[in-house]
C-alpha cells in the first residue's frame, strides 16, 4: 500500500524513456517480412514496461494470416506479455506503460476511437489454465454470443453446436450440454474455452501455453485442433515447449529478455538458425 503519489502519465512516459534508453536495444537479428496483405497483425517498435521494469524492447514483427505463429523463449522473456498486448489485456493494469504501435488489419488498436471490447472479440484469447465460467457447458459457449445481444435462440443453438464441433468437443458433450462446465476434464475444459472463443468469430486466436496444464493425450488433441483451425483464422501460440512449436507452427519468433532475436519459418529456425543465441537456446545450451 503505497502512500506515494501515483506518478502522472507524463511522468511515467519519461520514466519509460529512461528505462529504454539506459539499455539500448541490441536486437538486430534477421526478421522475416510479410507483405501488408499477407499479415493480419503488425507490431511496430513496441516497447512495454511494468512500472519501471521493462518487459518488451522495441519489437517489430508481422503475424501472417491463416498461419500458426509461435513465440518461444525462456521464461520471463516477454512472450506472454507480448501476447496480452495484442488484445490490450494490459489495459487492466494501470502500471503498464507502452510505446509503439500494433495494427490489426491496418488499424491501430490503440487509437482512441477503438472499442476495446470489439477488439477483444476479434482477437480471441485462450489462457494457460482452462477458465470455464461457473455455468453450464452450453452457457459457456453461448456467453460471448449473448453479449452481442439480439440473437435468436435457434441461431445461438446452431453456433454453439458449430463451435463445439470446430473444437472437436461436440461428440463428447452433446448429451450433457446443461451440465456444469466444471464436470469436464482439464483437456475438455480447454477445448471448451477454445470453442467459447470460436463462437464469437474471432479473426485471430491468441493461445497462451494452452497445453501446459494438460496431460500428453489432451495436449495432442489441442495441437491437432490448432492445426485444423488455421484454415479459418490466424493463430498466435506462446509456448515454452519447443517440440510443440516445431510440431504446430508455421513461423516461429524467438524472444529473449524482451527483445526479438530471430523470426522466421519454423523449419528454418529450428534446423538452421542464423544466430548463435537462437541455436544455443534451441539445442538446450542456454544457461
Amino acid at each position: 500500500m503505497g502512500w506515494r503519489r501515483a506518478p502522472s502519465a507524463g511522468h511515467r512516459e519519461r520514466a519509460l524513456e529512461s528505462v529504454f534508453t539506459s539499455s539500448p536495444a541490441t536486437a538486430g537479428g534477421p526478421i522475416i517480412d510479410f507483405a501488408a496483405d499477407e499479415s493480419c497483425l503488425a507490431i511496430e517498435g513496441l516497447s512495454l514496461a511494468y512500472g519501471e521494469t521493462p518487459a518488451l524492447r522495441d519489437l517489430t514483427l508481422r503475424v501472417p494470416r491463416h498461419r500458426v505463429t509461435a513465440f518461444i523463449g525462456p521464461s520471463g522473456c516477454g512472450k506472454s506479455t507480448l501476447l496480452r498486448a495484442l488484445n490490450r489485456l494490459h489495459d487492466l493494469n494501470e502500471e503498464v506503460v507502452r510505446r509503439g504501435e500494433i495494427r490489426l488489419e491496418g488499424q491501430d488498436i490503440h487509437a482512441p476511437e477503438v472499442d476495446v471490447a470489439e477488439l477483444r472479440r476479434r482477437v480471441g484469447m485462450v489462457f494457460q489454465a482452462p477458465n470455464p465460467f461457473p455455468m453450464s457447458i452450453y452457457d459457456n459457449v453461448a456467453f460471448g454470443l449473448r453479449l452481442q445481444g439480439g440473437l435468436r435462440k435457434r441461431r445461438i443453438d446452431d453456433t454453439v453446436e458449430w463451435a463445439l464441433q470446430s473444437a472437436a468437443l461436440w461428440e463428447e458433450v452433446k448429451d450433457r450440454l446443461r451440465a456444469s462446465a466444471w464436470t469436464l476434464s482439464g483437456g475438455q475444459q480447454q477445448r471448451l474455452v477454445i470453442a467459447r472463443t470460436l463462437a464469437v468469430g474471432p479473426e485471430v486466436l491468441l493461445l497462451d501455453e494452452p497445453a501446459s496444464a494438460l496431460d500428453p493425450i489432451s495436449t495432442l488433441k489441442i495441437e491437432e485442433l490448432i492445426r485444423n483451425l488455421k484454415s479459418r483464422l490466424s493463430l498466435v501460440l506462446v509456448t515454452h515447449n519447443m517440440q510443440q512449436a516445431a510440431r504446430v507452427s508455421d513461423y516461429t519468433a524467438f524472444l529473449q529478455r524482451g527483445e526479438l532475436v530471430e523470426y522466421g519459418p519454423t523449419q528454418t529456425l529450428f534446423t538452421n538458425p542464423r544466430l548463435a543465441r537462437t541455436e544455443n537456446y534451441i539445442t538446450g545450451r542456454m544457461t
Binding site: E105, Q107, A111, E113, V114, D115, A117, E118, R122, E203
Partner: peptide, 10 residues
C-alpha cells in the same frame, strides 16, 4: 472488409 473496430458498445 469486416466491420471496423470502432463499433462502440457503451
Amino acid at each position: 472488409m469486416r466491420p471496423f473496430l470502432t463499433r462502440r458498445r457503451g
